[in-house]
């Protein structure tokens, strides 16, 4: 699996989408409306209460946008691929991955690379930029670098969790319900972490490190005090994502091995 092969696939995927251009555009439009709905509800909520846990509207908008943006990046190379895996394993199409001279994981995620997340990216990036302007964030080199690294790491956390759920397809008949649970849990990070009790905060930091997706990076960038943590601890953020993703990848490949020895 090489980068040129990936781009080759993306080119074909784009060509395929363009076969149904109108549909594609309509879908993008619909998704923007749907996520617009989420933003509006949070906006109305804060209209009423001014702040939540000391975060005002632009700050929450910034937090939420990082969450959505990183989710879209991560999901574009994991969600649909992993969600459909149970079906592929059941009907045997998964086998055709194993007869190719490629890494099955890399091929699966690239073959299914989902251009449909462009809507998520558009709306979350726009709101993020708006929020950054409102918040008057300093565009220092370190801040820019930190934001970019955090976004990559956040995308990898999302992709890692979804990859892990996907690997369940090799063991159980169904895995879809785990995605439902994941989407429920993801709601935690639509709001600042201190809203929740200590136990939840610990769980979201250590067990399912969703807090690293958007809360920690946003808090550091907005200079919010996090339990008096020293500033250097902000550099944990870019490390957590790659680590999660690596663990998930190993688990997934382990799942393939199990599939090969147990068989369907």
């Amino acid at each position: 699996m090489t980068l040129p092969l990936f781009f080759k696939l993306v080119r074909l995927l784009m060509k395929e989408r363009m076969e149904y251009r109108a549909d594609f555009l309509l879908s993008i439009f619909a998704q923007i409306i749907a996520y617009g709905g989420d933003y509006i509800v949070i906006w109305m909520f804060i209209q009423r209460f001014d702040t939540i846990a000391g975060w005002n509207w632009p700050e929450i908008a910034f937090l939420y946008s990082i969450g959505l943006f990183t989710y879209a990046l991560g999901a574009s190379f994991s969600f649909v691929q992993m969600r459909d895996l149970e079906e592929q394993v059941k009907n045997g199409t998964f086998d055709s991955l194993l007869i190719k001279p490629v890494n099955p994981y890399l091929f699966l995620i690239s073959r299914g690379f989902n251009l449909g997340y462009i809507a998520h990216i558009l709306i979350s990036a726009s709101v993020m930029i708006w929020a950054i302007i409102q918040l008057d964030l300093k565009w220092t080199l370190i801040n820019v670098l930190y934001l970019i690294l955090s976004v990559i790491s956040g995308a990898l956390i999302n992709a890692g969790i979804m990859t892990l759920i996907g690997s369940v397809s090799f063991v159980w008949v169904r895995s879809g319900f785990l995605f439902n649970l994941f989407f429920r849990l993801k709601e935690f990070i639509s709001f600042p972490l201190p809203v929740f009790g200590a136990l939840i905060q610990i769980l979201l930091t250590i067990v399912m490190p969703l807090a690293f997706v958007n809360y920690y990076p946003a808090a550091f960038l907005l200079s919010k005090d996090i339990l008096g943590l020293p500033t250097w601890s902000m550099w944990f953020v870019p490390v957590v994502g790659p680590f999660c993703y690596w663990v998930a990848y190993r688990a997934w490949m382990g799942g393939v091995n199990k599939y090969q020895s147990a068989g369907g």
Partner: peptide, 16 residues
Amino acid sequence: MNHFALSWMLGGLLTI
């Protein structure tokens, strides 16, 4: 023929 888009729109309206 685009149930996907329509149900996302309905979802958005319901959210709000």
